[in-house]
């Protein structure tokens, strides 16, 4: 599939080049297409359910249960940054500030270019650091 898309894309680019008035000069600098704004990953139904129940437990103060649900979810989708972030929040609530910081950093490692998620992780990290001071 990759090579076919590539060939079609090249063809289109060349055609596009022909369509506009060609300007002689050095090869254009490669244009980087930034991915569209983050819409949120689609979690599997299983993980969505566990995430929801974890949030409910955390809100009710049942923190170990919340953490257990999140760990179950992480066994299904270990690369999901939202799960790691939620776990970081629970650690923060539990007063485990060192773990809150590390877990938020782990969330960042999967966050890619999701700036909203990263920003939230940064907030958690800063809260954890402030609490430890």
């Amino acid at each position: 599939m990759g090579t076919r898309i590539r060939s079609i894309a090249i063809l289109l680019l060349l055609l596009a080049g022909c369509a506009t008035a060609p300007e002689p000069g050095p090869a254009p600098a490669p244009v980087e297409q930034a991915p569209p704004p983050y819409l949120g990953p689609r979690e599997s139904v299983a993980v969505a359910g566990l995430l929801e129940s974890a949030r409910a437990d955390a809100a009710a103060g049942r923190l170990p249960t919340a953490a257990a649900s999140l760990e179950r979810a992480l066994r299904i989708e270990p690369r999901n940054p939202r799960l790691w972030q939620e776990l970081a929040r629970v650690r923060l609530q539990q007063g485990d500030y060192a773990q809150a910081e590390s877990t938020a950093a782990r969330s960042n490692s999967w966050a890619g270019s999701d700036s909203a998620l990263r920003a939230e992780n940064q907030r958690i990290i800063e809260d954890a650091r402030a609490a430890r001071r």
Binding site: G2, P30, P41
Partner: peptide, 20 residues
């Protein structure tokens, strides 16, 4: 260079698609 640029773009688009 063109081929590689297109490749990179396609890859990025694919990974965005997969994430969404």
């Amino acid at each position: 260079a063109v081929v590689d640029t297109v490749d990179t773009t396609v890859k990025k688009a694919k990974s965005w698609w997969e994430r969404v």
